[in-house]
Write a protein that binds this DNA or RNA. Structure first.
Length: 240
DNA sequence: CGACTTTGACCTGCGC
DNA sequence: GCGCAGGTCAAAGTCG
């Protein structure tokens, strides 16, 4: 039943996203050709033109947040490792900033329409300013790597997707997943035998992972992004 | 060969 | 209507 419910939810959520996109397009005023294309798509979904192009009572403004990343000043790439998988689809030099602005789309989930703009700060070129538009319709790749209900069986973190779209050309080593897999595999190898040694090794592994993650710039960047997002949400909630 | 980046062209909104 | 600037598309190139 849970699976069915989850599937139904996903279907409905995807339809909502499609409708939101269409209403936004119509509101912004699209060309006749594009309107026709959207209309065809709408018909295939079972909605009439009025439903799709009727101006919404409340405009759907995508959630926008801005996060600053401290980088090496010598590193001129616009790659921000925040844990998600991004696909770059454009780059522009804007008037107010001599450094180019890169445009990314979330490529982790097909239906995810979150966009990200990354540009160096005018004041401090070592700071990357990432502007996020929209909300992910999926869990972070980190949590997606952990199967639901995994209880000493799954948790194969070695399958953790490699964050960022830099295609691992950068020099940063991918040591964390290996370490994590090593630890969890060791920990969960003996099924159901919770010995004292296992508890000790668990504590040891936790310490080892903590020190490993602390030294991993990718993880700290992702953590900073997550905390910033949380603070942003809280600020919005308090404002309401 | 697939996934991804690069980059010039194109689209769209906005001010004049 | 025109020009500018920001945003997006898509073909070509790159890499593992």
């Amino acid at each position: 039943m849970l699976t069915l419910m989850h599937e139904s939810y996903n279907v409905l959520h995807n339809q909502l996203i499609v409708l939101r996109n269409k209403t936004t397009e119509s509101e912004l005023g699209m060309s006749r050709k594009r309107k026709h294309e959207a209309n065809v798509a709408a018909e295939s979904c079972g909605y009439d033109e009025d439903q799709i192009f009727k101006k919404p009572k409340e405009g759907f403004k995508p959630k926008v947040s801005q996060i600053h990343f401290q980088t090496d000043a010598s590193d001129m790439s616009l790659v921000v490792k925040d844990g998600y998988q991004w696909r770059k689809y454009g780059q522009k030099v804007t008037r107010d900033n001599p450094s180019p602005r890169a445009y990314f789309k979330c490529s982790f989930a097909p239906g995810c329409s979150v966009k990200r703009k990354v540009q160096r700060s005018v004041d401090d070129p070592s700071v990357l300013v990432a502007t996020y538009e929209g909300e992910h319709n999926h869990l972070s790749p980190f949590w997606s790597a952990i199967p639901l209900g995994s209880d000493k069986q799954g948790l194969n973190l070695g399958t953790l997707p490699i964050p960022s779209s830099s295609k691992s050309r950068s020099s940063s080593p991918r040591r964390t997943p290996d370490l994590m897999r090593l630890g969890f595999d060791t920990l969960y190898a003996k099924t159901g035998q919770e010995t004292e040694a296992a508890v000790t090794s668990q504590q040891f592994l936790v310490q080892q992972m903590a020190s490993s993650l602390k030294g991993d710039p990718n993880f700290t960047a992702a953590l900073a992004a997550a905390i910033s997002g949380k603070i942003f949400d809280q600020a919005r909630m308090e404002k309401w």
